[in-house]
């Protein structure tokens, strides 16, 4: 294939997009809205994954001790835990310390805890950090087996909930993305069908003067790809702008309130661009191929 043939394909496809302005706009719009939804789900999944990862790296085990233990027993327990495989660090937090921290974390509302100093309901505890968060269940079990332990908790629940959310997000987005994908393919193929219909005379003539199949089909294929491409460019710019302002807003308004922030803009942008461009071009080429097969038996 020669370069000028591609130029010809491009020129012809731009011409017919221009000629069928209304249908072309409708196709671009439908690809765009499909990709917008796909992109929003993608951003959600990315962020939940990001959050899960961050939390996972922060996993620590809280070991609450039975009330009223002597310092020696507490030291023995500390030594025993230190000896467990996978334990990186162990810090003792006395119940007074815990109450103080709790009251600090409440800020203005710390008055709620006033009067508890004499009758502290919290317990002495250890905060155990691990070499590898995946060891948490094993270490937890080992600690539970020791004596004088009231209970052992780690961020398991939150982590598992997050993973559940990601799972449902993925299933849900897959279904919605699938439906939107099919709709946009259908609309594109309809647009191409109109172009084929408008140019059936020309196609007939091309057949008689010895144009090869791909030469006849080229402009229509390009048209579909171009429509998909334009749709994805628009949706990428919309999503990128939206995400940029959202993440800035969150950073400014809620700084300090959230443990973890949104995924950085640049990382999201890269994934978005690659994924949505590929999606858009696939939608466009599938749509045009369907029309070409159905209406362009050359």
């Amino acid at each position: 294939m020669k370069l000028r043939t591609y130029k010809y394909f491009f020129k012809e496809s731009v011409k017919s997009i221009w000629r069928n302005k209304v249908m072309s706009l409708a196709s671009i719009g439908s690809v765009m809205s499909a990709l917008l939804v796909i992109g929003i789900f993608l951003i959600l999944v990315l962020n939940v994954d990001y959050l899960a990862q961050k939390l996972e790296s922060q996993v620590e085990i809280k070991v609450h001790l039975v009330d009223g233990l002597s310092d020696n027993i507490i030291k023995d327990i500390q030594k025993e835990i230190e000896g467990l495989e996978g334990v990186k660090e162990i810090v003792f937090v006395s119940k007074d310390q815990a109450l103080k921290e709790f009251s600090e974390s409440l800020g203005e509302n710390s008055y709620l805890l006033e009067g508890l100093e004499g009758d502290n309901p919290l317990s002495d505890s250890f905060v155990v950090t691990l070499v590898d968060p995946r060891l948490a269940p094993k270490v937890t079990l080992a600690i539970k087996a020791m004596s004088n332990i009231e209970n052992v908790v780690y961020g398991k629940e939150i982590l598992e909930k997050l993973l559940d959310i990601t799972y449902f997000l993925r299933i849900g987005s897959l279904a919605i993305v699938g439906i939107l994908f099919l709709i946009s393919v259908f609309i594109i193929s309809n647009t191409i069908k109109l172009t084929v219909f408008a140019r059936r005379r020309e196609i007939g003539i091309m057949k008689y003067i010895g144009a090869t199949d791909w030469f006849v089909r080229g402009p229509f294929f390009f048209e579909g790809v171009l429509l998909g491409f334009l749709g994805s460019i628009i949706s990428i710019s919309l999503l990128a702008t939206g995400y940029y302002f959202l993440s800035r807003y969150i950073e400014q308004q809620m700084f300090g309130l959230l443990v973890v922030s949104l995924m950085p803009f640049n990382e999201v942008l890269n994934t978005l661009i690659v994924a949505l461009l590929i999606f858009g071009v696939i939608i466009g080429s599938l749509g045009s191929m369907i029309s070409i097969r159905k209406f362009l038996r050359v």
């Binding site: 020669k2 000028r4 043939t5 010809y8 005379r201 020309e202 007939g204 003539i205 091309m206 008689y208 003067i209 010895g210 144009a211 030469f215």
Partner: peptide, 20 residues
């Protein structure tokens, strides 16, 4: 079977264009 939106010259040239 001429193309109405092409001139005489373009109609003839078209036959050569499709053969690259």
């Amino acid at each position: 079977r001429l193309l109405p939106d092409k001139t005489v010259y373009e109609n003839v040239a078209f036959a050569m264009e499709v053969t690259e």
